[in-house]
Amino acid sequence: MQTVFVTGATGLLGNNLVRLLLERGVRVRALARSRSKAEAQFGQLPGLEIIEGDMQDVAHFAPSLAGCDVVFHTAAYFRESYGGGKHWAMLKRINVDATAELLTAAHAAGVRRFIHTSSIAVVNGPRGALIDETMARDPRDADDYYRSKMQSDRVVQDFLRHHPEMFATFVMPGWMHGPGDLGPTAAGQFTLDYLRRALPGIPPGTFSFVDARDVAFALVAAAEKGRRGEHYLAAGRHIAIHDLVQIYEHVTGAPAPKRQIPVAVLWPIATMQEIIARITGRPALLSLATVRTMRAEAERTRFNPEKSRDELGLTFRPIAETIRDEVDWFKAHGMI
């Protein structure tokens, strides 16, 4: 790789991917909706070219794809879909339709290598099972965001079938944390809320916790060593929320909440939050979609790393290290 194009470059995953590529001497064209946000995220890094554009208008930035060896597609519409209300139109527009447009534009520009950021949303299994890349989720068992990611994958797979000269692979992250979360994402907001003592208690549920820097490594390794059309899990470590906040307490010194919040209590809280969100126009702090996902995915967050370990060389750093670096970054950027 000499020159690559990265969508979603200012996001948590995107900015860590950009930094990794630059460290390896690769020139990066980084797509960002806001040049000022990109400059706040990156400053003036050598080898970086900011391309101002939006996934809603691929044609606008398509000329910048020419001369690139690889497109890394990390952009997605996600956070808002868990902020209350219905978001299917925008989920389909950004996650599905725009992916098709990006593939077509990249191919027309001469790009033949496309690394797609998929999601653990596209796989599923029984509670407690070790889930691997072959265990496809039933579309009937998917919320709108999960459904958009499944359709996005299908777009890429269909393109590969019709273009045998094109190479694409899929990397499937879990719940990403880490430094560089300027947004912040819901994961970063969880960390900020913990530090501000804003968590009212410990809800039930489990996650697959992963450092965004490890996912960035997986994306680069997939471009270098991945097999055409294959999915690679980069889901991280299974952990219950109760155990996760104990690590937060150990790393930060801030006491973890003690009270357990049952799911039955979360439903009315989420309902009230969505009513407030509709009145104020601000996202719900806890939405009904979040509660549904938390309940549906509990104990379905054990993912088999064997394929990614063997083929990509992927390993996962300790959760405590990720939290420490995430907190230090928030402090350094005045967000705490």
Rank of each mutant, 00 (worst) to 15 (best):
T315N: 12
R33N: 06
T185A: 12
S81A: 15
H162A: 15
Y82T: 10
H116A: 11
K331W: 01
D141G: 03
E326V: 02
D158C: 05
M176G: 09
P305K: 06
T3K: 07
R228Q: 06
Y82I: 12
P257H: 11
L286M: 06
I261S: 06
F330R: 10
K307H: 11
S36K: 15
E230N: 12
P283K: 08
D310P: 00
Y194Q: 07
R259Q: 12
R113A: 12
R227L: 12
A98Q: 04
A108N: 13
D132P: 07
S308T: 11
T191W: 02
S152F: 06
S148V: 09
K307T: 07
G25N: 00
P318Q: 08
D158I: 13
G67D: 03
L199T: 10
G334K: 08
L45A: 03
P257Q: 11
V215Y: 02
H73W: 09
S118W: 09
I247V: 15
A109G: 09
R79P: 05
A296G: 02
I279P: 00
I275T: 00
R213V: 03
M166R: 08
Y146A: 10
A284I: 03
F159S: 07
F330N: 05
D214I: 01
R227K: 14
D211G: 00
R237L: 08
A298E: 08
Q157D: 14
R213A: 00
R79F: 13
I323S: 03
G83L: 02
L288V: 14
R161D: 15
A129D: 12
R295N: 02
R127V: 01
A106G: 12
Q44S: 14
H250Q: 14
F190K: 00
R300S: 01
G67A: 08
T252N: 06
V215K: 02
L13Y: 00
V291F: 04
L91D: 04
A168R: 07
I269Y: 08
Q2P: 00
L12G: 03
G14A: 14
A234R: 08
A240Y: 03
L195H: 07
D141S: 10
W88I: 07
G110E: 10
L12H: 03
D193S: 14
L285E: 08
A298S: 02
P173H: 13
V263D: 02
H250D: 13
T315W: 06
D69Y: 04
V71Q: 05
F167M: 14
V6E: 00
V251Q: 02
F330T: 05
L233W: 00
L20A: 11
A216M: 11
A142L: 05
H238E: 13
Y194F: 07
N15Y: 04
V123E: 01
W88P: 01
K92H: 15
L312K: 06
F330E: 04
G281N: 07
A32S: 14
K258S: 14
G253S: 13
R292S: 01
V18S: 05
W267V: 11
M1W: 11
A66V: 14
V251F: 06
